[in-house]
Design a protein around this nucleic acid. Sequence first.
DNA 1: GCCGACAGCGATTCCTTATG
DNA 2: CATAAGGAATCGCTGTCGGC
Length: 440
Amino acid sequence: MNQSPWPPYPKYKDSGVEWLGKVPEHWEVKKIRNISTSLDHKRIPLNAEQRAEKQGNIPYWGANSIVDYINELIFDETLVLLGEDGAPFFEKDKPVAFLSIGPIWPNNHIHVLRINSTADPGFVKYSLNSVDYSNFVDGSTRDKLTQSKMNNIQLSFPPLSEQLAIVSFLDQETSRIDALISEKERLISLLQEYRQTLISHTVIKGLDPNVKMKDSGVEWLGEVPEHWEILRLKRVLESLEYGISESLSTDGEIPILRMSNIYDGKIFWDDLKFVDSVEDSLYLQNGDLLFNRTNSLDLVGKVGLFEENRTFKTVSFASYLVRLRPNNRANSKYLDYLLNIPSFLSEARSNAIPSIGQANLNPTRYSHLLVAVPPLEEQQNINDLLDQETSRIDTLISESRTFIDLLKEYRSSLITAAVTGKIDVRGFTPLGSEKKTTDE
DNA sequence: GCCGACAGCGATTCCTTATG
DNA sequence: CATAAGGAATCGCTGTCGGC
């Protein structure tokens, strides 16, 4: 918070408002009602059908974002928009207030404020994104900032010229931070793409780039190393079993893995449900794979690898999952990598029977799909490489995520510090301007 | 203007039917 | 008759509506 290179103001007074704390001596605390006019009564909600008839390029605003574009406007002036219900009031890094300078059509879920001449709309926007809304938002099922509560929100204001200086400082700094954030996000998506490509490529082409290849005769596979076997999945499976089909409860002896516990090839042990007994043959053992036979089409077919777990000695699985137990021709982890690559999944999904909103992938048909299987030792080598590389990539991804979180934190604390006068940015020089701005 | 209610829909769980 | 398979029922979330 106070690692910023910006100094504090010379003198402070108590604002009397908790989230503002002390403010510079010459700043004034004012309520929203005293610096703005509400234009809420002019808002008109349009449902999807009405909007479909009015498609255009004028932003149609909902609670926290532009929801659609239509060909009519209600306002065409500089306004501050502030979420009314459904806005992320308690997520520090997400904005709830926006500056609007062109034509817009807002619906009834975002307040519309015309700021009067004593305040700068940009400054109000930044301030409103720093407010602690816990004393203003109510509603039991959904957060809601009523108009009267909004009008009582207090913000602190320096003289107009100083507001403008703060806004130009924040505009520049936040856009710098945002650029860094999107750079990091782009890096993450590149890493994810690379991770996926690496896995797909390795389980289809192997590790040796000079190995002799052959045509697999299978469309989604293409060419594979000559010494790999092309065979039906079931040839490398010892068994294929449905899970248990009974009601689950929130407590009991034996956790029952469900489709939501499978993600990204792994088992996640959260939100568990239980039963009290399961016949022995349906216990999971180390190296079993679980496959999701029914779900929406873009999730059906996902596979997760079960690995022994210290917390639970016996674990079983629900009927919409099918246990694939590899035989001695295949390594479980290798199959987990293979069965989750996009090209295999889409091949599997094309075999699913779609019904309304869900797809059923028949396990027998699934197990008849053709795969390419390297010798066991090579499977192990592939696993080793993929384990090592994916964990390296995952570390990079999580470091980037942490960095993004830090940037977001910094961004919001910088805004709060500037609009509450904790830092004095009057000496700030905008990029591309030679002279120092001299306000006040 | 405010707030509770609910439609719509994807995701998840449960149950019935077909089949061998 | 048991189990595999498919589909019905329910859950839970989000955005929207409309009555007070």
